[in-house]
Amino acid sequence: MNAKIGYLIALVLLIVAPFVIYPVFLMKVLCFALFASAFNLILGYGGLLSFGHAAFFGGASYVTGHALKVWGLPTELGILTGAAAACVLGFLVGMIAIRRQGIYFAMITLAMAQMVFFLFITAPFTGGENGLQGIPRGTALGAIDLQDNLNMYYFVLAIFVLAYFLISRTVNSPFGQVLGAIRDNENRAKSLGYDTDKYKLLAFVLSATLAGLAGATKSVVFQLASLTDAHWHMSGEVVLMTLLGGLGTIPGPAVGAGIIVTLQNYLAKGPLGGWVPVVLGLIFIVCVLAFRRGVVGEIKAMIRKSF
């Protein structure tokens, strides 16, 4: 009940936000919030640390860019094509990585993401170091001009809300129950008759697909798909966002993404410009040492204690 009211307030704030804050900045926040929420599905609820999610995020942005610019697909279809590509890539990476756990899982996902990154550097359609520029935003539903930032914002918000709902539903579904059981005690879940690898693979594919959706949307917003989004830095950044916001809480990663993107934007403008990575690193250290549950996790724990 309380959560419903909270979400309603958040939604109202998001609807009025572009009249106060620059919409392009807000769209960036939403894209990363979706990316982190998708990532949380596999780290927070699947208990698996993927270090290769940039491949899905960046990969989908290239595919969407190509689909819109070269094939001339409608915007919605272009974004879906990007997400579908991330889904396929997620299935391939997942098939190989899911058999391992812990550091081995992280290393396999990293290695495969690096292979994908190399592919993007060399492949002709990505534009190499320059990236894929001038991706057309097009129209939504064939009528609403997305060149207008406000229209684009509500389009992105709609995607975010739908995907966020899907993530929260996945966590609170029969599948989510089994996934939680596997994270808590995989051997016990096996002994209850569950082929745990299949459940983990589905979680991984869902996470990859939604990460792809985030990347695809971002490429439309900025009309650019670049190597930055596929680089392993991005895989690390999404871990930071998720941990900072609150691992294994549904709103946590979105909050974490909001904090990180805001810091990056405002610090870059100020006197600390070149020191952004250092500031983020310090925040990360403080977060891990002092409040391990992340922002949302700590608030939740405080509320639980005071009642």
Binding site: L166, F175, G176, D184, N185, N187, Y199
Partner: peptide, 30 residues
């Protein structure tokens, strides 16, 4: 061997739910 982050009822239900055949249904409400 229990699932510590679930309630006692959810623990037992995880064992019961496999027979429903909906354990891969991520779109269905809990």
């Amino acid at each position: 061997a229990v699932f510590p982050h679930m309630t006692a009822r959810e623990n037992v239900r995880v064992a019961l739910q496999r027979k429903l055949g909906t354990s891969f249904h991520f779109w269905r409400p809990v």
